[in-house]
Design a protein around this nucleic acid. Structure first.
Length: 284
DNA sequence: GCCCAGGAGTGTG
DNA sequence: CACACTCATGGG
């Protein structure tokens, strides 16, 4: 079953390919394939129109909602960009990333994904997540499995997790499964950013950066500003800001307030594009 | 082979 | 609070 939905502005390649998600794969024909909950979704962009294919058959009804939630279709990114464009450093580059959207990831999957993302490169992170899905998740269609639920992943021993190539992160995931339950996750959905952040940081393997990533992508807190090595470089080069996580986070919060998450996304995209192609959107 | 990765935890000054 | 050190491993 194929159908369409309208999300604008949207640049699917930028949004799904920039490294904020780990399970979307671009196909040789340019379309994107990835699992959302119990659907395998195929996406192709035609201007403002998004072509959706969903499997297995019978899942089409929920697929459109899944896609719109994942791509945060209701975000008023035009307003976000109008506000952020007042920033003299961001202003010049924003017209080139208008279709780059923050994604919304399932909170449990997001918590695990960014806990795994410590001290590993993106191809490896993707592989760790893929292996966990195949070994402990449930099958969606042939060859594709959903990310394991909390109860599914709780059955894994540390050794089994190590065998998935997690390294020292096996212990983090194992302990995470025993520090969280579905009731706690549901309650965290209702917390404001500050309380959510401190609760996340109480979890094993979750520090400043992971907590902010999970708050942003897993719980949709757009004021969150995760600072990784790329953002550190961007802040140093473009804004002459260096120092502790706390200090840099305060700089971002004071400067971009409720839209810090989108500012982070633009800076992250730019910094990585700069490293790989030399292209640079923002001026110092 | 070498380098480093969307860091976190722990111990020390 | 700031820094140093370790963690376990694979992708580029």
């Amino acid at each position: 079953m194929r159908f369409t939905t309208e999300i604008a502005p949207l640049d699917l390649d930028q949004t799904l390919g920039c490294g904020q998600t780990f399970r979307w794969r671009q196909q040789p024909d340019g379309s994107w394939l990835g699992p959302l909950e119990d659907c395998l979704i195929g996406l192709r962009q035609n201007g403002a129109r998004l072509l959706i294919e969903a499997r297995p058959s019978g899942s089409e009804r929920s697929a459109k909602r899944l896609v719109r939630t994942h791509l945060r279709a209701e975000d008023d990114v035009v307003k976000v960009q109008r506000v952020l464009a007042r920033d003299p450093v961001l202003a010049a580059g924003i017209p080139r990333v208008t279709g780059l959207r923050i994604v919304k990831i399932d909170s449990w999957e997001c918590l695990c994904s960014f806990t795994l993302a410590t001290y590993a490169n993106i191809p490896r992170i993707s592989k760790m997540i893929e292996t966990l899905a195949q070994r402990f998740g449930h099958n969606i269609v042939e060859g594709v499995s959903a990310f394991p639920s909390l109860s599914e992943l709780s059955r894994a021993t540390v050794n089994e997790l190590s065998d998935c190539g997690l390294g020292y992160r096996a212990r983090y995931i194992h302990d995470l499964c025993r520090s969280v339950d579905s009731r706690k996750l549901r309650r965290m959905e209702s917390l404001e950013y500050d309380d959510l952040r401190s609760e996340l940081m109480d979890l094993p393997g979750v520090g400043d950066k992971v907590a902010d990533c999970v708050a942003l992508f897993g719980f949709g807190k757009l004021e969150s500003f995760p600072i990784d090595v790329w953002i550190e470089r961007a802040l140093a080069r473009l804004f002459r800001q260096r120092g502790s996580y706390r200090k840099l986070r305060k700089f971002a919060t004071d400067r971009w307030g409720p839209y810090a998450g989108y500012a982070q996304e633009y800076l992250y995209y730019n910094e990585r594009a700069r490293a790989s192609t030399g292209a640079c959107l923002f001026t110092e």
